[in-house]
């Protein structure tokens, strides 16, 4: 039963990923002109002129003279083999450029997700159980402000506080001495020391909304008759709340991973740009601005796939956790 569901859900990924790849490809194609136009313009700035023949030559070499669908299928065909094409701007294979940054992005998103849960779960439960207490009001207020503050603004404010009050630059993920060093324990510790800021910045709005969701779900559940049943059994207040309503309220909480992840990935892009993190965001922005098609396409595709996979994981977790979903 469960395995059938999971298999079905995994099969569903195929059309989704296909759609994602089409969207990514179309987005990359959307700007007027192509990389060569940008390239020629750049050369023009430094008074170099490319003759028509070499332009055509370059076009053919990059396959830019072929019809769109041919370019698309070529692109996808190579993708399947792990070849993301060449970056025009960097003159190296895209896969060399993206994986390191994607790994950091993934790690950052995952760390943030953990942070978000660790903070939102207890606060959400507390807020619901002690409805209208001082703590609830404080949590609600902070939650609202967290929701209302754009990531980049929060990043800027924290950086401002860092510079003005602590006199240190808190951007980046690594200190200078580790930036290009190979992985080591020291580098890892250094990373952890830098990671908290982007995690807090990224996690704040998701935490805020998860607190609100947890609180609202739990408030609904706390009034359900089965809570009374448990109470009438003689269960202590703490355990009955943890075992029954919290357990039930956890389901919608789990299913939110599905949309928290897209939000985190989105937020990570902006935050990374402000905090100059070596993740996907800044490089993607640069690639988009210079119309470095294969590089930008790889990022859009990978980031979107990441969220589609996140949805898959949350659906599977939900099935494992909630017997009702299984039998529907």
């Amino acid at each position: 039963m469960i395995w059938r569901f999971i298999l079905k859900r995994i099969l569903w990924m195929v059309p989704f990923l296909f759609a994602v790849s089409v969207v990514a490809f179309l987005l990359i194609q959307a700007p007027p002109g192509d990389y060569l136009t940008t390239y020629i313009a750049k050369l023009g700035e430094s008074n170099e002129v490319l003759d028509q023949a070499s332009v055509e030559n370059l076009r053919a070499r990059f396959g830019l003279d072929q019809p769109l669908y041919v370019q698309y299928f070529k692109w996808v065909g190579n993708l399947v083999q792990g070849d993301f094409g060449m970056s025009f701007e960097w003159r190296q294979p895209v896969s060399d450029l993206v994986w390191g940054r994607m790994a950091l992005t993934l790690m950052l998103s995952f760390a943030t997700l953990l942070f978000t849960w660790a903070v939102a779960f207890p606060i959400g439960v507390y807020s619901a159980v002690r409805k209208y207490s001082v703590g609830d009001y404080i949590a609600t207020t902070i939650g609202f402000i967290g929701l209302a503050t754009p990531n980049f603004l929060l990043a800027l404010i924290l950086m401002y506080v860092g510079v003005v009050h602590f006199g240190s630059d808190v951007g980046g993920l690594f200190s200078n001495e580790y930036a290009n060093a190979p992985w080591s324990w020291g580098k890892f510790v250094d990373l952890m020391q830098h990671l908290w800021l982007p995690v807090v910045v990224l996690g704040t709005s998701a935490t805020a909304s998860l607190i609100r969701i947890m609180r609202a779900n739990l408030l609904d559940e706390l009034n359900k008759p089965y809570v009374d049943t448990a109470r009438a059994k003689g269960l202590s207040e703490f355990w009955l709340i943890m075992k029954y309503p919290v357990r039930v309220a956890l389901n919608p909480f789990i299913s939110t991973i599905g949309w928290v992840l897209p939000n985190l990935v989105s937020g990570a892009v902006v935050t990374a740009i402000v905090l100059s993190l070596p993740t996907a965001g800044p490089l993607m922005l640069q690639a988009l601005l210079s119309q470095d098609m294969y590089l930008a396409g790889a990022f859009v595709l990978l980031l979107s796939s990441l969220t589609v996979i996140g949805m898959l994981i949350s659906d599977i977790l939900l099935v494992l956790l909630d017997p009702r979903v299984r039998y529907e």
Binding site: K224, P225, D228, T229, A230, Y244, R247, V248, P323
Partner: peptide, 15 residues
């Protein structure tokens, strides 16, 4: 001991 009106909602749906 106590039993309630709505047996469906009085039992936990996930246990």
């Amino acid at each position: 001991g106590m039993i309630f009106q709505e047996p469906m909602s009085s039992l936990s749906p996930v246990h």
